[in-house]
Nucleic acid binder design. Sequence first.
RNA 1: GGCGCGAUAGCAAAGCGGUUAUGCCACGGAUUGCAAAUCCGUUGAGCCCGGUUCGACUCCGGGUCGCGCCUCCA
Length: 458
Amino acid sequence: MSLQVYNSYSRKKEAFTPLDASNVKMYVCGPTVYNLVHIGNARPVVVFDTLFRVLQRLYPKVTYARNITDVDDKIMKVAQDEGVDIGEVSSRYAAEYQKDMAALNNLEPTLVPYATQHIDDMINMTQALIEKGHAYAAEGHVLFAVQSMEDYGKLSNRSLEDMLAGARVEVAPYKKYAGDFVLWKPSADGEPGWDSPWGKGRPGWHLECSAMIKKHLGETIDIHGGGKDLLFPHHENEIAQSCCAHDGRPFVNYWMHNGFVNIDGEKMSKSLGNFRTVRELLEKFDGEVLRLALLSAHYRSDMDFSAELLEQTKTNLDGFYTALRGVSEIPVEPVNIEKTDFFKALQDDLNTPQAISELHAMAKALNKAADNEKAELKSHLIAAANMLGVLQKSPEAWLTAGGEGDITAEAIDALIIERNQARSEKNWARCDEIRDELKAQGVVLEDGKEGTRWRREA
RNA sequence: GGCGCGAUAGCAAAGCGGUUAUGCCACGGAUUGCAAAUCCGUUGAGCCCGGUUCGACUCCGGGUCGCGCCUCCA
């Protein structure tokens, strides 16, 4: 079976057929960089990074772009509060974002376009939209006239009437129609801005994605991803801008949206304040734990992020690493995982829970394997885990890594030597004493055929 | 008000119109000086009410509850 993806636009699972199989094009909405990101912001990154890995396995070349929004009112507010230039705020948090995403084993996208480096492209697109009768200038603003587009609202499945009926915002006086949205807005003195045919100003939020996609990936791309809260208005407006600027030619063939990360059943969001930053979670949990936890639910469903989930995920990873530790001397050989149930699960609209279940089956098979089967089974497990972006560390390092204040490896080894001496003398009382002492410090001893191993337990 | 999503065992979470999901936890057994790890096994499920069907957790209808979008948001 080939790759199937759920397309938000058709609201159906569809077979994936790229426009150009020699170069698949994917774009995912990145962050607005004005503070540290929370774990909910990390979900689309991990999800589409995983899809990126799957696509790379299936196609010779995949061009994956994930933008950075570095001009925005929230960035301006932070800059003003700190008395610095917006560039200082945005470059600082873009760097922090890069750091957090790398800690979650996300690959670098092929392209990371920045909004402020595409102002000309945005102005050009805005001009084209005005010329084609889809936009108008008013009081220093340029607005997109949604009524000029027949299919407006199709992605988010809503009609203009319905939207306006439920509108909770006042309509700006310069809008000809309440649903029109801003392509370009004026900047006051002291606010960041760029010269344009409509005066000094800055782009509206939706415009950058349309302009950057056109510039770097072309008029029509294969996959566009993001959180489901972007369906409306962001992605709806992107479609409007791009399709209308390109005389109705298709913009995106497959729209994909991930569900939310919840805390206590409620959406985590910066505005609600109930968020957990990736940075603070990384203090307690390895990036692989966060990543596997995010992949433990199907990407389209909402998931609750709890300490229990993370602890359970940590236990699972310990299990995988324990299986690998037992075969650490066995070399990895090249294997083809495309025919495995694991890879089939990923090809079925990125069914990561199913894939993880297959990972458990692989680990179990490895644990039970005869010596002559181990190399192949180990190689399969590692190749599969690579596809999910986990099990990237050495088992030894994973299982023995300690934090500050933990008993040192040297001290543990010394006690093990003493205990082995006691064992040879059958001094079981002393043996158990040492075991208990280490256990109290979170260290578990495992007596095996080839001597005593140890690992740390949370 | 409009549009949409979900409800699966103690917890997490999939597939599937009929045959064990899986993981964590719990319990039993093998193994071990004792453990750990591992293996084998057990308990335990599908919100409610109808309908379709030989048969429904799975399809259809109606409820109930929870969540989301319609405003910045991954």
